[in-house]
Amino acid sequence: MSEISFSSIYDGVSLALHAAFPSVQVHGGNVKQGLNPGDLNVIMPSAGNTRQVGTRFLRTPTLDVIYYPKEGMAECCEMAETLVHVLEDITTPAGDLVHCTRCEWSVEEGVLHVLVEYDHHVYTPREQDLMETLDLEMEG
C-alpha cells in the first residue's frame, strides 16, 4: 500500500469518472469557459487532517462532483444515482482502493452537486528525539 494523499484521492475520483463516462468532459477546479451541458467538474472544497494517536492521523477529504444537466431535475436525479455507485469505491493512481465513507447529493440552481467523503488513516513518520547521554560522577 502506498501513501494516500489528498491529491491521489482527487485523481482517483477523476479516473473513476473518466472510466464511467468516457464521452463526457471532466473538468477540475475553476473553469472560466468551455463548460457545456452534460459536463462534470470536480473540486475539493474541504479537507481535514486530525491527529489521532502518536503518528496516526485521520484525513477527511470532501470532494464535490458537479454535473451540469442538459435538461432538468429528472436528469439530475438519474445522474445522482449513477454517480453514487461510480464513486462508492475509487482506485488511486498507485492502485490503492479507497471506500467512500459518506455521500450526499443536492440540486442547487439547476446544477447537481454530489458531495463524497473518503475518510482514511495515515501514519506520518517522524524522527525520534533521543535523549542525550548523561554521565554521572560519584565521589566517595
Rank of each mutant, 00 (worst) to 15 (best):
A16H: 01
A47V: 09
I43D: 06
F57Q: 10
F21Q: 04
P93G: 11
M73D: 12
M1I: 10
M131G: 15
Y118C: 02
H18Y: 13
V13R: 03
M44L: 09
M79K: 11
L136V: 15
M131Q: 15
G140I: 11
D11N: 14
T124E: 15
L83N: 01
I90A: 03
T60K: 12
E127C: 03
T101P: 01
M79L: 03
V53R: 15
D96W: 05
E127T: 10
T50E: 15
E139F: 08
E139T: 13
L58Y: 10
S8K: 13
D39H: 06
A94I: 05
E132N: 14
V116E: 00
L87W: 03
W105A: 06
A74W: 07
L83C: 01
T82Y: 01
T82E: 07
G110Q: 03
R56Q: 13
V26L: 06
T50Q: 15
A20M: 03
V84H: 05
P125C: 00
L35R: 08
A47K: 14
M79C: 07
N30Q: 12
Y67V: 05
E109P: 01
F21V: 02
S8N: 14
D11M: 15
F21G: 04
L87R: 05
V31I: 11
A80M: 03
P61D: 08
F21A: 07
C76N: 13
M79S: 05
P45E: 05
I90K: 04
N30W: 06
G72Y: 07
T133A: 15
V42S: 10
A20F: 06
G140C: 01
L40A: 00
V26D: 08
L87T: 03
I4L: 12
E3K: 13
S46F: 07
E75P: 05
E71F: 10
G95V: 04
T92W: 09
A19T: 12
K32Y: 12
L97G: 06
V116N: 00
D119T: 07
D129W: 06
Y118H: 03
I9W: 11
S5C: 10
S7A: 15
C77H: 13
E132C: 08
E78P: 07
Y68V: 04
Y10V: 06
V111P: 00
L17S: 09
E81S: 11
V111L: 05
H85S: 04
Q33M: 11
L17P: 10
V31L: 01
T133E: 15
M131I: 11
T91R: 12
G48W: 10
Q128Y: 07
V24I: 09
R56T: 13
L136M: 14
L40N: 04
A74V: 10
E117R: 07
I90E: 02
Q25Y: 07
P93H: 13
P93F: 13
A94V: 08
G28F: 15
E127K: 11
S7K: 14
T55A: 09
G95R: 05
C103E: 00
C103N: 03
E117I: 02
S14P: 02
L136Q: 14
P69M: 09
P45I: 01
L63V: 00
R59T: 09
Q25W: 02
T55H: 08
T55Q: 11
S23F: 02
L40H: 08
A47E: 09
V84L: 00
E104G: 08
K70G: 08
V24K: 12
